[in-house]
């Protein structure tokens, strides 16, 4: 009977950990549009991560999340893989040599073969992603022990994640900086443990990815205003 009730408690705790393991996330998105946009058949989009920063790097996982979320055939959004694009245009989009403003982009496309190669890829919009997710605060104490009679943890830990990303959209047809979208998602994760740790994770990176993808989708498919 006792073994049965222990199993029930473990099942309940596991179920709670699986179902109720998401913490609250607060997100904010801002957009600045400089030019009109729109997608036609065959227009592709590539997401490139800014890698000039020494202190941090935009996570590869965030770029692939954004790419997956943004891909939408019915809206005509075809994603081009980042690495393939960089390889095809090597060395012009390498971190230390990529154009950082529209004027630099115009100069780059005037180089022999570059505009033709970009046309080959079918990429119309280039989205530069900059930012990362970091732990900005935290506290608590948690310790785990293992003994002959079993193992267990006791304590409480918390940490606050801040996911801040900015997407700069460049139109390779007009050679203009079409606009910028920025997002910030903040959330606190908790890890209480009484024998079994139950993580309650605030998925800020996922929230930032989903929010940015949704906004980018609207931005890109918007009907030209002129």
């Amino acid at each position: 009977m006792q073994r049965c009730s222990v199993n029930r408690i473990i099942s309940f705790v596991t179920l709670f950990a699986m179902v109720g393991s998401s913490g609250c996330v607060t997100s904010r998105i801002e957009q600045a549009r400089h030019t009109s946009t729109g997608l036609q058949d065959g227009d592709g989009v590539v997401i490139l991560a800014q890698r000039q920063n020494v202190d941090y790097q935009t996570e590869d996982g965030f770029v692939s999340c954004l790419s997956n979320e943004l891909e939408n055939k019915s809206l005509g959004i075809t994603m081009h893989p980042e690495q393939e694009f960089m390889d095809m245009l090597f060395p012009w989009f390498e971190p230390a040599h990529a154009p950082t403003h529209a004027e630099g982009l115009r100069e780059l496309l005037a180089r022999p073969g570059v505009a033709e190669r970009i046309a080959e890829t079918g990429v119309r919009y280039l989205v530069w992603i900059d930012g990362n997710t970091e732990i900005v605060d935290g506290g608590g104490n948690l310790s785990c022990t293992v003994g002959a009679g079993g193992a267990g943890c006791f304590g409480f830990q918390w940490w606050e994640n801040d996911s801040t990303y900015e997407a700069a959209i460049w139109d390779l047809d007009t050679l203009e900086h079409a606009g910028t979208i920025s997002t910030e998602s903040v959330g606190t994760s908790y890890l209480p443990a009484i024998v079994i740790p139950i993580p309650i994770i605030a998925r800020t990176k996922s929230a930032a990815c989903n929010g940015l993808a949704r906004q980018l989708r609207e931005f890109l498919v918007a009907t030209p205003i002129d």
Binding site: M88, F90, P91, P112, G113, V114, R117
Partner: peptide
């Protein structure tokens, strides 16, 4: 493999 540079 390093990519082939896009240069003349």
């Amino acid at each position: 493999e390093f990519p082939t540079p896009l240069v003349e």
